Amino acid sequence: MAKRRVLDRIPVVHQLRQSVGLQRGMLVAGLVLTALFLVFAIFAPWIAPYSYNQLRDAQGNFGSTQPPSAEHWLGTTVGGYDVLSRTIWGAQTAILVVIVALILSVVVGILLGLVSGYLGGWVDRTLVVIADAIYAFPTLLLAIVVAIAISGGQSGLWPGIMAAAVSITVVFIPQYFRVVRAEVVRIKAEAFVESAKVIGAPTSRIMFVHVLRNATRTLPLIVTLNASEAIATLAALGFLGFGIEPSAAAEWGYDLQRSISDVAAGIWWTAIPPGVAIVLTILGMTLIGEGLNDLADPRLRARRRATNQTPADAVAASQPASREFMGEVE
């Protein structure tokens, strides 16, 4: 029993226990696809047969657009790179961009939403106008403009990662800002906040201890969905030529763009692997986000309880809940 309680505290495990039917299938499928993506990203140096920028081995050059063979399972690109290796290494580039982008956007978005919602006044009005203006701007166009302003186009690994991450961050900040601000505006009128003010608690303590902890409960859902959107934005930047140079890192969008002319010539093996990698990774994270979003619906939890409860539980469920159960003090 104690072990089960410890496992239930892990967010994904807790939601997995709550899920039923289609929701559980979506969540499990998303977890499997995302786990594969993380394994490839973390262990790319050991899984990939070659480096992302390797053009030759002991036998000589790999050759351009070589078909799949025993030496190159997915063939080689027009530039002479091993397709399988660049596809695996591309997961590492994607995860680095996603981590940096989400950390920056979550921290900045939460802080701005907390300050705007709690202080109100001209600060709130100014931040809301700025956030709405950014949110109304086309996402990809804004990312392109920021990427050009930071790196001037293609760049090395970390400059390219930071350029892509910052461009994605600018797009994501208004989302976290709006969600957190709305929650803060609602929470700051609650009784426990008023009680903290009465006893003389500092404003900073009320904001960061009492309000912030209760205003970020829905953020894991947004983070999961934004992770998939970050990968799509990164791939779009690379596809349009504003990503990372191929000699500095492997990037799925760039490899997909370079393979367009190959497909017209009947060379299919250079386009399918990066395209499938993008689709499966985005699909996995989206399924997790949608599964968690469905589990946030109280009607689903009610259906799950209804399928597992005994007749005695059904009778008890029909009785009004006590004030203690609702978290109130009698």
Rank of each mutant, 00 (worst) to 15 (best):
L114C: 00
W89K: 00
G153Y: 04
W89P: 01
V107Q: 01
R304F: 03
W73M: 11
E245N: 15
E190W: 11
S228T: 09
V6T: 15
L27C: 08
T233E: 13
R299S: 05
M207V: 12
L27Y: 05
E194M: 07
R86E: 08
A48I: 06
R9I: 13
T169Q: 00
F62I: 08
F239Q: 06
R5Y: 09
A41E: 07
A249P: 00
I99T: 13
E324I: 15
V279T: 13
L141Q: 09
A230C: 06
A165D: 04
R9K: 09
L234P: 06
V13A: 13
V146N: 02
R303Q: 07
S64E: 12
D294Q: 10
L142F: 03
Y254T: 12
R301Y: 14
P138D: 04
L221R: 10
L38C: 05
S116I: 05
E183I: 03
P45T: 06
N53W: 05
Y135D: 01
I88W: 01
I110G: 01
I260A: 01
V193G: 01
E328M: 11
A321L: 14
K3E: 12
N214V: 15
A271Q: 14
A312G: 12
T87D: 11
G80A: 12
L38P: 07
A91P: 02
T93L: 07
A296G: 10
Q319L: 10
F43L: 12
E190N: 15
P273R: 02
V166M: 02
G121A: 09
M285G: 14
I134E: 03
Y118Q: 04
L287S: 08
W269M: 08
F37D: 09
S64D: 09
I222L: 14
G156I: 09
V198E: 12
T126E: 14
A227K: 08
P274D: 02
P311M: 02
A250L: 00
T286A: 04
W46V: 10
R299V: 01
V100Y: 14
R258N: 11
S195Q: 14
A201W: 07
L119V: 15
A2S: 10
R205L: 15
Q23P: 07
P298T: 05
